[in-house]
Design a protein around this nucleic acid. Structure first.
Lengths: 210, 210
DNA sequence: GTCTATATGAAGATAGAC
DNA sequence: GTCTATCTTCATATAGAC
């Protein structure tokens, strides 16, 4: 039960289902699954509890629908970027900044928190989230690295592993600190500096061709 | 409320409090905070619910006591290693393997999961956990890097940042995949290979002195 | 489809005997 | 300190009218 239906259409904006989904999103991300009551969701959606049940069956299905809706958002957010024209160093810097900003944003953090907490109970959840979010992103970055490698701009034997290493260097322990509530939301300047260091290091490990 | 009392003594093994703590640990780590009932804990500890309340007051305090007990364990686990005699490459490899094995172990994963989920409700939890676990480990590694740098074996300007970068390269996305339930428990051979790559990369970024 | 009102059950916490 | 039995609250889910 409660598989994630990623293909289901997004309800029309303004409709009752959309209201309910938005309210569910807000409540689940703020409180987690167990601590969120259907009463609270109905109240936040300015709808009766019976209406919530009419549309989404039960609490688990509503939760799954909310996460699926979120995964669709994530997939849409990652639009194709125009990295082709940029020098390699600039392109990597841009990738690193976008990735880090996305990863550390309050929304991403909240979703991550809930998915991590509920994965044991919703076995599908982790897999689907990974596929729609991180795997998608990593695939795009690996594809970019593959292109510049094949154009002879840089020496990269295994683009997937290179991507992993690059992102590992960019993120460091920032994600952990953020998720444990140790760091303030953003830190624009500090983020730029961290990305700069990671790019420098990456270009030492995978040197550009002369 | 429910601050973490790390200084409280560990109850004598075999005593009722110890039984309760062990049962609470098992249940909370398996189910999370909200989904675990005091009934279940009492049953698992083969004790009445009233006894649980007599010793730990309420559910939140019991949870805090369980996490505190776990943090003490973690701190004890990280014994001083004898890295001094080893060549730098060997020492880094050993550090990387120990760290990765620890990070990906089922116990660590379970604790991480619960702490991440409950940090918004227990503001102290994330900070204390970070201090007792990750920060402790990172501090030790940074200290090692500082020592070999001061002995002229390697060029490292900022040991803390170097540690962060090293661990970032070692971990990559393994932790994320594991926490989302995508990878099997261990993978001894694959882990060794990942560490090997990270050490190679690290020694390109921070070259050993000739 | 949407509401109000309610059944049902679970879980946190306690009273009172031993 | 430890137990059995119970109180109380609250959340999931549904019945039935409109």
């Amino acid at each position: 039960m409660a598989r994630l239906d990623l293909d289901r259409k997004e309800p029309a904006t303004g409709s009752k289902p959309a209201q309910i989904l938005a309210a569910a999103r807000a409540e689940f991300l703020r409180q987690g699954f167990a601590a969120t009551s259907m009463d609270a969701i109905a109240r936040a959606a300015t709808v009766s509890k019976a209406t919530v049940y009419a549309h989404f069956g039960n609490k688990e299905d509503l939760f799954a629908a909310m996460v699926a809706s979120n995964c669709r958002r994530i997939a849409e957010t990652l639009a194709e970027e125009t990295l082709e024209g940029l020098p390699v160093r600039e392109a990597l810097t841009q990738i690193g900044r976008q990735f880090l900003a996305f990863l550390l944003s309050p929304d991403t953090q909240a979703i991550y928190r809930v998915v991590v907490a509920e994965t044991p109970r919703f076995p599908d959840l982790g897999r689907r989230f990974y596929a729609a979010g991180p795997q998608n992103t990593r695939g795009r970055i690996a594809f970019y690295l593959e292109r510049i490698a094949s154009r002879g701009l840089i020496r990269i034997d295994d683009p997937a592993r290179a991507t992993e290493m690059f992102l590992g260097m960019v993120v460091g322990h920032r994600h952990l600190r953020r998720v444990l509530g140790l760091d303030a939301p953003a830190g624009e300047a500090e983020m730029a500096e961290a990305v700069g260091r990671a790019v420098d290091a990456f270009l030492k490990v995978y040197p550009p061709e002369a």
